[in-house]
Amino acid sequence: MMNRRNTRAVNSAGVICKHTILVVGALISIFPFIWMVLTAFKPEPETLLWPPRVLPMEPTWQNFINIFTRWPFHRFFLNSFIFAGVSTLTILLTSSAAGYAFAKIRFWGRDLLFFIFLATMILPFETYMIPVYLLVNKLGWINTYQGLILPFVIMSFGLFLMRQTIQSIPDELIDAARVDGCSEFRIYRDLILPLSKGSLSALAIYAFVSVYGFFTWPLVVTTTQDMYTTELGLAMFQKAFFTEYALSMAGAAVTSLPLIFLFLFFQRNIITGITLTGLKG
């Protein structure tokens, strides 16, 4: 805009320079994925060629077939989707319902309670995993979906995000509803939820992606292969077939593609979600 003052030549040179940097950067940023996908299509001997070749000479589906026949990856996917899906739904419910209480209802100790909840966010889960494990064990939930999901039914970040969003909803709207005799639950359901749809969907994707990616908890809490998540399955798979590069790459591609598709699909929501958290820090 302001560059109009400058000469056109300088301007276009700048633009070219800028786009060169951007294109190179973008290529570096996605190259590992391209490499992963292309390698996954190579027959095994081709992976050991030197110098390495980018394109497969004789592309094959065999690696993908092998992964599903050698290991029950379809089962891992089911587990991962149950694990991440149910966790996400409960996180959405707890975050939005409690977020409404924290944003719009005044009660004694509210800010302190909120602060304590939020403060738990700063420790990584691994640091207090043992007491949680002992609890899950006491409940008899080792190697069950309940046990897998329990630690992730709440998310402080989600609570924070939902409180921030709901705070920005004008009080007048809520008051009007109250005057009309709506119960708090109806306000929550008919007013708050529809109005915070943007944040909810952003949180949904954020929660899904982060729960899907948890590794250490499934590692300790599952005891049989039929309860593995894809993360765990891939780690064990790679351990078992570590010299079969193309196969490992196909495994990596298969496990990461669902998330990439999810991202491409909901791109805007994800970016909005990050935007929201960043803005109101």
């Binding site: 899906g85 149910v86 959405l92 939820l193 749809k197």
Partner: peptide, 21 residues
């Protein structure tokens, strides 16, 4: 999640399905 209204219902239903599974 198109309609925010049915979402608590979905959650509860999902939990039940999970328990059955």
């Amino acid at each position: 999640m198109k309609s925010g209204r049915s979402f608590p219902v979905i959650t509860v239903a999902a939990c039940i399905i999970m328990l059955i599974l």
